[in-house]
């Protein structure tokens, strides 16, 4: 499996975790832009690839995931669930060297309640 397919797999995996409302392009801008370009070129039936993968011969595989979390789910617990899921997925595959998984909550989505009354 190439890294683009792996990124797609991980994006789909993370997007399905309870409390996750979005997966955003992660990593330095140029990599995120690169993934976006690939996504635009991909056919509609292909899942987006938003998880950043960087391979380093010495340091191993670095995975960066940026998610949006629904505020009805505690952010720390949701991030741990995402980290565990990504780790388990990668452990089931062969990869050389070390592993460095970074999961960031970049947006906490609060359900917009009915407008609160401003009058006392």
């Amino acid at each position: 499996m190439n890294d683009l397919d792996l990124s797609r797999e991980l994006t789909t995996l993370v997007a399905g975790i309870p409390g996750v409302v979005g997966v955003y392009p992660a990593g330095p801008l140029h990599r995120a832009v690169g993934l976006t370009v690939v996504n635009v070129a991909a056919s509609d039936d292909q899942a987006p690839a938003k998880v950043s993968l960087v391979r380093d011969k010495e340091k191993g595989l670095r995975v960066e995931v940026a998610v949006g979390v629904l505020s009805t789910y505690p952010v720390p617990r949701t991030l741990r669930t995402v980290g565990d899921a990504v780790r388990a997925h990668l452990d089931a595959m062969e990869h050389d060297g070390g592993l460095d998984v970074r999961v960031t909550a970049s947006h906490i989505e609060t359900p917009n309640p009915a407008a609160p009354s401003l009058t006392p």
Binding site: D100, V101, R102, V103, A105
Partner: peptide
């Protein structure tokens, strides 16, 4: 955010 796995780093 605390992570028990040294290979997983969590932040907000």
């Amino acid at each position: 955010i605390t992570s028990v796995d040294p290979e997983v780093r969590l932040t907000v």
